[in-house]
Amino acid sequence: MKKRAVVPNIILSLLCILCVAPFILLVIASLTDENELIVHGYSFLPKKWSITAYVYLIQQAAVIVRAYGITILVTIAGTCVGVMLVSMLAYPLSRKDLPYGKVLAFIVFFTMLFNGGLVPTYLMYVRYFELKNTLWGLLIPGLLVNSFYVMIMRAYFVSSIPEAVIESAYMDGAGEFMIYIKIVMPLAVPIVATIGLFVGIAYWNDWYNGLIYITDPKLFSIQNVLNRIISDAQFLSSSNLGSTVNSAAVSLPTTAVRMAIAVITIMPILIAYPFFQKYFVRGISIGAVKG
């Protein structure tokens, strides 16, 4: 049995290298001397290393710190509010005794089958809610309440919170809201944490809302800054948000800077990954069971 596992181990190791190698190339490219990149190109073993790209980014720190602040703010707010709304929607729907429960569940569920698409959504948010170039534009459209998560959480409530517990608390005089806060939520910590993780990652990684609803660089999240720089490497110095360093005098290490800012964007999530990967894997399997 153990002898046979050699081949699977080799293949899996190769696949893992394939998954990780691009990240390593990215980091190395960000640490490669700009001239080296221009003349010899990207390499896993550059002849000349350099940290100029990072020095330049520190000079332009204002833009990046600001964008990071916006990402963190939107991620925290979106995750907290999102999880709250999802659980407050999922719990009543999990109650078999709730009148019209089935109809309400269908209203939630139907949004997974049919949607109006980008055009009406965009026109509504921009023309009636005036979300364009506000932080709400990053926070609200699309991401806040995901009906799929409502369904998963509802299934969890149905299967792991005994009706008897709720009924006896009610007999003891607890109101429905108190039951939800004091009994249901503590029992639902695993699912709340898992869904919170997925909502949080969705906000952290989101660039789509920024692409559509934000044109003012002051409100760019870190993903939007990244998105802009890939086509416009001058963005950091040209946007009037940056420091007053005279960038015309400094030759801009364009290629390495691009890679460096991508590294800075993924660093926090890569550092945090070992700590939450268990929940990440588990969350994906939950989705599979009920998906």
Binding site: L85, V86, M88, L89, Y91, P92, L93, R95, L98, L104, I107, V108, T111, F114, N115, G116, G117, V119, P120, T121, L123, M124, F129, I140, P141, G142, L144, V145, S147, V150, E176, F177, Y180
Partner: peptide, 22 residues
């Protein structure tokens, strides 16, 4: 229980149902 569902439902109506009519 219905009151608890209001914020989430309002969100789905705005984000998902109104655009359908659009």
């Amino acid at each position: 229980l219905y009151l608890m569902m209001v914020p989430g439902m309002v969100y789905l109506i705005i984000n998902n149902y109104i655009p359908m009519f659009g």
